[in-house]
Simulated assay, not measured.
Amino acid sequence: MDNLDLGVLRTAAGWRAEARGVVLGTITRTWGSAPRPVGSLVAVRDDGLIAGSVSGGCIEDDLVAQLRAGSLKLDRPTPLRYGVGAEEARRFGLPCGGTLELMLEPLGPQSAVDELLARLEHGERVRRMLDLASGAATLADAEPGADALVLTATRLVSHHGPQWRLLVIGAGQMTDYLAQMALALGYGVTVCDPRAEYADGFVIAGVTLTRDMPDDVVTAFKPDGATAIVALTHDPKLDDLALMEALRGAAFYVGAIGSRVNQAKRRARLAEHFGLTAEQLDRLHGPVGLDIGARTPPEIALSILAEMTAVRYRAAGARPEAGCAV
């Protein structure tokens, strides 16, 4: 679940607290190309106010039109499909003749949205199971590695909370931008900095700060294929310790700030003092980030997340369909 969809749940819960009627739409299937991935959310209030997005706006407009026509007065979850034919796909802004299916769910006390949000606020990964006959939802801990939405004839199972994790070494100015952007992309973010002069003033809502030594933090983090680690201190005593452990692990992305000259020196240190192999060192992204001519801290943070995103999707074998602009 990305941060946009978490915001949809929060908005929907707020509307419910005001005793407003709310219908929650979840993308359950797509065929061809679609503007948003499976699991994306949109909420429609009883007066036509929209939160979230599942298309470029055309489907949202249609949902509002259906609500005003009275066809969204639902008593249980109901599927709705858009773009069955090419003409309808164009009408609803689905690129390349795509087809998209929504599960429309009238929210109520049985939906367990408040409980879900409470658990997400504690950083939990949660599995939500929606009974399609009754509209009642139950919650459980997400299974390790599980992220896929599953739709059967009787229930819809979705996973919520950060699946992807980012560990940043260093709590400097650039980390502020990197952490906030990463939160918006759905990462669970942890920042490590044992230096009091940096850690004392670092506070970002939703970000965990640890003052332990970087190598210990990386080890305790247990990096896996959904983990990115970025070293930003410019201090070899801190960055090198973190990279030593990170490059031996399974993180999908390991990056370090510094010029090409400094990167060459870093590689030599890691090989000589810590015994890292050439194969392990080749996993290091440095200079960190895509080369977009970035100069300012927010621009560099953007370049780092752009490279992380590219590596993440390449690792998953994802490729955009020819001729599609999503």
Rank of each mutant, 00 (worst) to 15 (best):
T30K: 06
R36F: 13
V38A: 13
V38L: 10
G39P: 07
G39K: 02
S40G: 13
S40D: 08
L41M: 07
V44Q: 03
V44Y: 02
V44A: 07
D46E: 15
L49Y: 01
I50K: 01
V54M: 09
S55E: 09
G56L: 11
C58Q: 13
C58G: 07
I59V: 15
I59M: 03
E60D: 06
E60K: 06
D61V: 06
A65R: 11
Q66P: 00
L67G: 05
L67Q: 04
R68V: 03
S71T: 09
L72W: 00
L72M: 02
K73G: 11
K73P: 01
L74P: 00
L74M: 04
R76A: 15
R76H: 12
T78A: 07
T78Y: 02
T78V: 13
P79Y: 11
R81A: 15
R81C: 15
Y82D: 14
Y82S: 11
V84L: 15
V84A: 15
G85T: 13
G85K: 08
G85H: 14
E87M: 07
E87Q: 11
E88S: 14
R90T: 02
R90I: 00
R90W: 04
G93D: 06
L94N: 10
P95V: 06
C96A: 14
G97Y: 13
L100Q: 13
E101G: 12
E101S: 15
E101W: 12
E101V: 14
L102D: 11
M103Q: 14
E105P: 01
A112H: 02
L116N: 04
L117A: 08
R119K: 10
R119S: 07
L120E: 06
E121T: 05
H122F: 09
G123D: 05
G123V: 09
E124L: 04
E124T: 05
R125D: 00
V126P: 00
V126N: 02
L130K: 03
L132Y: 07
L132V: 10
A133Y: 07
A133T: 12
G135F: 08
A137V: 05
T138Q: 04
E143N: 02
D147Q: 14
D147C: 11
A148F: 03
A148V: 03
V150K: 10
A153Y: 01
V157M: 07
V157I: 15
P162W: 04
P162R: 07
L166P: 14
L166H: 14
L166T: 09
L166W: 13
L166I: 10
L167G: 08
V168I: 15
